[in-house]
């Protein structure tokens, strides 16, 4: 917010950790926690189904190829759309207003939110990677270096997606727009090489897919987890690390610069009468 995170008083930081603890408990250790098992179950099921097929006459199995893509997909959905929808809800239900009324409340709240999502993403990634590695030892990173690569691209994914989620959540007006965004994110997975190499798509769709971070994060995860010869399946037959760093870097800047501006603008507009309006709308229209 207006003060950088470094200037967060120790007490607000302590409150942020308390918030994270409570939110992790209410997210993971209640009925809602089941939803964190959906993506892992689907991923493993599809991998079992695909275990005997290979991708484009290579030695890479379709199951092996799918795992990194699903990780990227899950992190983008969770990091961008998850954070965006939560922020939208918290704007309408009075959470943000409550925090605005407390000294350093919003900074503490946003710090807690970032920490919560970092850990939630770690949990959902682990829930996919660990069972997959047990069922398909081939699909798991082969050596410590490649585990380290996996951890690196995970951190990159979280750092890129959470600010973008905050930016989107602050910019979206209403649940209609959120729904469109959600559809867009799922649609994007089709043209981002998540389920099948991008080379299989028409050229113009390849270009569209390469604009967004989902493709580049998927590429990064495949680079970290797949054997070297898998690079031949990618566009240009290489991992294109430089291009990946450049595109993800641009998205990182968009998020890190844009999110505080959008959040500040959104938070200025939060007031008791706005929350009351949302409540009226919800009670009369149901959304």
């Amino acid at each position: 917010m207006s003060t950088p995170l470094a200037a967060l008083p120790r007490t607000a930081w302590r409150a942020a950790r308390r918030q994270t603890r409570i939110d992790l408990r209410t997210n993971l250790l209640t009925g809602a926690g089941i939803s964190y098992l959906i993506t892992p179950v689907i991923t493993i099921a599809v991998m079992i189904f695909l275990r005997d097929s290979t991708i484009m006459e290579s030695t890479i199995s379709a199951a092996q190829h799918l795992l990194p893509g699903m990780l990227a997909f899950g992190l983008v959905i969770g990091g961008v759309m998850g954070v965006a929808s939560e922020l939208m809800m918290e704007r309408e239900d009075g959470t943000l207003l409550r925090m605005k009324a407390v000294p350093h409340g919003l900074q503490g709240f946003l710090a807690g939110k970032t920490l919560t999502h970092l850990l939630l993403n770690l949990v959902s990634a682990a829930l996919i990677v660990i069972p997959a590695a047990i069922v398909f030892p081939d699909a798991a990173p082969a050596n410590p270096a490649s585990w380290l690569g996996l951890l690196t691209i995970f951190v990159v994914a979280v750092v890129v997606t959470i600010p973008l989620g905050a930016l989107l959540g602050a910019a979206l007006r209403g649940y209609g727009q959120l729904g469109v965004g959600m559809l867009g994110a799922y649609g994007l997975s089709v043209i981002s090489g998540i389920f099948y190499p991008l080379a299989a798509l028409p050229a113009w769709l390849q270009v569209v897919g390469q604009i967004f971070p989902m493709y580049w994060l998927g590429l990064g995860f495949r680079h970290a987890m797949l054997p070297a010869e898998a690079a031949l399946l990618e566009l240009g037959g290489t991992w294109r690390t430089v291009e990946m760093v450049v595109v993800l870097g641009i998205w990182l800047v968009i998020g890190v610069v844009g999110a505080p501006i959008a959040l500040r603008k959104m938070i200025r507009g939060v007031s008791g009468s706005k929350v009351a309006e949302s409540r009226e709308r919800m009670l009369s229209q149901g959304y």
């Binding site: 607000a12 308390r18 239900d93 009075g94 009324a101 350093h104 929350v275």
Partner: peptide, 29 residues
């Protein structure tokens, strides 16, 4: 300054004590 808001469904899964302890923490300094 204290503000009594008309909240309606925020922090639904938190316990009463948890929310008050959390908010109270910000006032310690």
């Amino acid at each position: 300054v204290g503000i009594v808001l008309q909240s309606w469904r925020d922090h639904a899964k938190w316990r009463v004590r948890e929310l008050l302890e959390y908010l109270g923490g910000f006032y310690v300094p």
